[in-house]
Amino acid sequence: MSAYAELFNLSKTFPSPQGERVIVRNFNLTIDAGEFVTLIGHSGCGKSTVLSMVAGLSSITAGGLILAGRELTGPGPDRGMVFQSPSLLPWLTAFENVMLGINQVFFTAPLYERQQIAEYYLSVVGLADCMHRRPRELSQGMRQRVGIARAFALKPKMLLLDEPFGMLDALTRYELQGVLLELWRKNRIATLMVTHDVDEALYLSDRVVCMTDGPAAEVGDIVPVHFPRPRDRASVMEHPDYDPLRERLIEFLEIHAHRRPSAVPGERSVALTA
């Protein structure tokens, strides 16, 4: 049985005056169909680089990507992307922003069907009453709701979330995590999310992948998260495994926070795949 999405020996290097600068080295990960995987690590460790390589926005130096049996080259709407900043086009309304992608993916469908798709997803994320407003008339949280609706509306094979709630206040973040989880429960799209919020990772994901610090970041530890779904925040946090898992993740981050980048050993044996 093969995995739904496979990242094998994904590497990223930049040429620099001091020779090759290795950002990510031999990153291996498999994601099952309908699985929610989260990448955590310190800021600048290269986790966003991994995500943008999967998205096709950043070139891959070595290694490769397979999604649903096909090797990926370059970006495409088969991977729904939610950026850290909502990245909405300010001259289009929320509805038009979502339609831009829908028109691209479902170009054979009649117009009213495409409009229904946009209206459906905007309603599900709670924007039924303000879908015809422009981004500047929406709050930061509402803009990110549009970003989530835009990603799901394309019915992508995979969902890529790049610290989607990083710019929001705590209350809005909780709300949007709920919105995301609800949409994901209905659609069960294989998801790769990047975050540095340990609680967010535990609440949302099936597995948490810890990345070692860059340069030359790799997979450090993979932590399975077996809270029953559908989840709600209270029962997840009361689960007897919650605190030990949280402890384990934070401990990992702390160990790697104190490691100086220059002291990175050349070879490290790590668990590469789950």
Partner: peptide, 27 residues
């Protein structure tokens, strides 16, 4: 770059990237 990334992720054609993203952003 965010706007261009949106265009790339959605695989907009050159013409659509120009008319839907670049020209409005430059206006």
């Amino acid at each position: 770059q965010d706007y261009m990334n949106v265009a790339r992720v959605l695989k907009l054609s050159r013409w659509k990237t120009l008319t839907k993203v670049m020209i409005p952003a430059t206006l």
